[in-house]
């Protein structure tokens, strides 16, 4: 309780720079509820300033990402589903051959082509974890967060959309988009 209050104060005074966020931590009065839902503890991470936006510079898992696995997560409708909104030109040939798996790529968000030229690896990690830290009004879900959400459906309560390793795997794919 105290720590979360301090974190809140810190957040409002200092802003997000250098703030240590521990999304898995719940306030004391929520302990009972959290226990019942038994969510897997989220990896904590540190947010710092990147050249363009905020960033998480350290790997969430300490393990190298697998870019082939990342690509699978990105097209999986129940996981990253990145192509629901983003075009990835590099995958278009594959999509033409396997339209069921890749479906049509959406046009809501900017194409991911050249993403690694626009943002650092740490910034891309931040966008995957919770894009709202950098862009508060975005439609983009936070893929590695489980806190401060409203009316989450039972089976997703306390869970993140993708795992910390999924984030690293997708990142391994994204950094190839120069």
């Amino acid at each position: 309780m105290r720590l979360s209050r301090i974190a809140f104060l810190f957040c409002s005074i200092v802003g997000l720079t250098g703030l240590l966020i521990q999304p898995g931590m719940a306030a004391g009065h929520k302990k009972k509820m959290m226990k019942k839902m038994a969510p897997a503890a989220l990896v904590s991470y540190k947010i710092s300033d990147g050249p363009a936006i905020t960033a998480i510079n350290k790997s969430l898992t300490g393990k190298a990402g697998d870019k082939a696995a990342g690509e699978k997560t990105m097209v999986n409708k129940k996981k990253g589903n990145c192509i629901a909104c983003h075009v990835i030109t590099k995958l278009k040939a594959k999509a033409a051959k396997n339209p069921k798996k890749y479906s049509q790529m959406g046009l809501i968000a900017p194409p991911l082509d050249g993403a690694a030229s626009r943002y650092t690896e740490g910034e891309l990690r931040m966008l995957l974890v919770n894009a709202k830290v950098a862009f508060p009004d975005t439609i983009m879900p936070g893929f590695y967060r489980a806190d401060n959400l409203t009316r989450v459906m039972g089976k997703f309560k306390g869970k993140t959309v993708i795992s910390a390793q999924d984030v690293e795997n997708i990142l391994a794919f994204l950094v190839t988009l120069k």
Binding site: L107, I139, K159
Partner: peptide, 21 residues
């Protein structure tokens, strides 16, 4: 609302007419 944290307005006011997949 929800795990994906979207409001009605996100799809139906901001992005209507555009492709979601």
């Amino acid at each position: 609302r929800g795990q994906l944290d979207m409001a009605c307005a996100h799809c139906h006011e901001k992005y209507f007419g555009q492709k979601l997949r």
